[in-house]
Nucleic acid binder design. Sequence first.
DNA 1: GTTTTTGTTGATTGACGAGTCAATAAACTT
DNA 2: AAGTTTATTGACTCGTCAATCAACAAAAAC
Lengths: 194, 194
Amino acid sequence: MPKVGMEPIRKAALVKATIVEIGRVGSLDVTVSQIAKRAGMSSALAHHYFGSKEDMFLAAMRHILTLYGAEVRGALVASRGPQERLHAVISANFSPANFRREVIGAWLNFYVLAQSVPQAGRLLRVYQRRLRSNLLSNLRPLAGPKADELASGLAALIDGVYLREALKQGVPDGKAAADVAINYLNSQLKGPSL
Amino acid sequence: MPKVGMEPIRKAALVKATIVEIGRVGSLDVTVSQIAKRAGMSSALAHHYFGSKEDMFLAAMRHILTLYGAEVRGALVASRGPQERLHAVISANFSPANFRREVIGAWLNFYVLAQSVPQAGRLLRVYQRRLRSNLLSNLRPLAGPKADELASGLAALIDGVYLREALKQGVPDGKAAADVAINYLNSQLKGPSL
DNA sequence: GTTTTTGTTGATTGACGAGTCAATAAACTT
DNA sequence: AAGTTTATTGACTCGTCAATCAACAAAAAC
């Protein structure tokens, strides 16, 4: 049976299975066996490719972050001007690829993982910085000095919408979610308030 | 040694210890022994008073929710008019009692718990409903038909600020956090936007 | 064609932890 | 004072699970 060149295939399958299982169970209390089974292999093989369960989790996080980053970059190159770019960034956060049950569930759990696994915290901070910088660079020309706190608010709002979605059931509505954030943005840009 | 009437004392100690330990470890992977030890008793006794670990978690959630509810109610009776009341509700969410490291950490983990333990989900939904209704009833006179989505946005923002605080280190700044939400509120009330 | 590398798994180890039990003792009841 | 209830714990059971190992097989290298 052994065909050569399985490593990347197996690893990809495990990463995917990890996300699905975490999403399904709703916590990080998934066994390596569960993940391996879903990925169609023995738990021993999972350990063979990833040294430990923690490595699997981190790989899964990286994968989600990579997908997310690609989505944002893609949306960004297709848009001109700060306003359009902001909308693109926000929409990317709620794109069908990212705003799915399993991914949302996994995301929430990665926040928890970040509390105890420093490496996970670092990954999450990379995401936060990236989001913040994307928002900030496009907000500055529109909001000037207000840009900074506006970016913070927007970022928190996006995360909050994710969090709340995790508690709901049914198919997530990315459009509606994005609208909440865009609405916030618009009203903040309209009236610079006091 | 056995003094009578220990039950409420022990239970309270366990609830407190549960929150502290979850906050300290940063996950629900706390052993009953750890909790019991921090509460100054044997794990057997912890099992004696609460049937199971899950019961301890739920009791801890209820406790946090109770504190939170009391805080909000207190802030509410001390204020007049929708505007002032909204500020009161928002501030209560970030009051020193609620916006503490351990509580924030515990809160995040309860969201995760809600994914797999129905009872926890119910408790969390009680909180969400309460927050929503408090916001909504005071937003309606100020924002009219916009009130509904504004409440959703505000609620998500509040949760998001919590989530982001969980990733930070150092002492949480409740004032700054509340300002983010109040700023959102103000700008939304100013320009009803398009 | 033998050696090495890569793929693969069933079985095992070793640790840890939730929950139970039996025993002990102080405090209340009658 | 005998009996019951409440408090308390050390020791134990039983299950689970991450990680390792030994073994086998196919491909690649030499």
